[in-house]
């Protein structure tokens, strides 16, 4: 306890470094909180239910069954369609759930922000972290479905960490960007719920990109999720290595979104305390 003299933190509004950097340092200091929040979200959600953690795995399976029943007649050309849908669905759910949860806690988690200091980004990071835990758990049912449907499981499955990390970075960037607007206009959260429905259908989760006419394909390719879903599917469903070109595009988009989102959010997050 006598060490406090050496490490005394000093807060001085006259001498502040870059806010984005300050946020980064603080997030590192509060890293254990991120772990606690993820732990809370993963466990508290299932504590009262009998099925517990198994629910995380059963949930996407249910959606997969429904979607496959509906769409398998239309997309008969895709072999192992059920596994194809599930692989796309898992990565899509990871993205949509983490961004939604992150925005909700940043924009609506205000009570806490108005009472104590916290690097607010921590809540977006933990939302993505929770999504990541759920995604990793859902890889088990994906492997099972692939076995059942007869899709070959290849060693590239282990490379799935790469798309997971890239989607995580992209989701965090999007969360921070949209939350920056949400600080001023909370209805952005609701608008996002509508937008994400459209976004889902503009991403080849249920279909293959090449069934679209060329002109449409060009526009759909501007959707970054196309590349993330593609890489994820390459390693899992197709059991192939992704091309360096696609990896570069995905990594570039993820990094850029994260950097811009982080920077903007760090500038405006102080406003949250001012909102009554």
């Amino acid at each position: 306890m006598s060490t406090t003299t050496q490490t005394t933190p000093i807060y001085d509004t006259d001498r502040q470094r870059s806010r984005a950097l300050y946020e980064l340092i603080q997030v590192w200091h509060y890293r254990d909180l991120i772990y606690q929040l993820i732990y809370r979200d993963v466990t508290a959600r299932y504590k009262r239910s009998v099925l517990g953690i198994a629910w995380t795995m059963l949930n996407p399976l249910g959606t997969m069954i429904i979607l496959s029943l509906v769409f398998s007649q239309i997309f008969t050309s895709i072999e192992g369609y059920v596994a194809y849908v599930l692989s796309g669905l898992l990565v899509w759910n990871f993205f949509s759930q983490s961004t939604t949860a992150g925005m909700n806690s940043l924009v609506w988690g205000g009570d806490l922000f108005r009472r104590i200091y916290l690097p607010r980004t921590v809540f977006a990071i933990s939302a993505v972290g929770t999504g990541m835990v759920n995604l990793v758990l859902s890889l088990v049912p994906l492997l099972l479905v692939m076995l059942v449907v007869g899709v070959k499981i290849s060693a590239t499955f282990l490379l799935v960490v790469i798309p997971i990390i890239l989607v995580a970075a992209f989701a965090l960037g999007i969360t921070l960007l949209l939350s920056s607007v949400g600080v001023f206009f909370p209805d952005v959260v609701e608008m996002y719920q509508i937008a994400i429905q459209a976004w889902f259908y503009l991403t080849p989760v249920l279909y293959k990109l090449d069934i679209l006419p060329d002109a449409v394909q060009f526009w759909v390719r501007l959707n970054p999720m196309v590349y993330f879903v593609d890489i994820f599917r390459m390693t899992t469903f197709y059991g192939q290595l992704f091309s360096w070109r696609i990896l570069a595009v995905a990594a570039g988009v993820a990094a850029l979104t994260l950097i811009i989102g982080w920077w903007i959010f760090a500038q405006v997050s102080e406003e949250l305390a001012y909102r009554a």
Binding site: T4, P9, I10, Y11, T13
Partner: peptide, 9 residues
């Protein structure tokens, strides 16, 4: 204005 705080709060 300026706020200066030294130490763990």
């Amino acid at each position: 204005g300026r706020v200066y705080v030294r130490g763990r709060v």
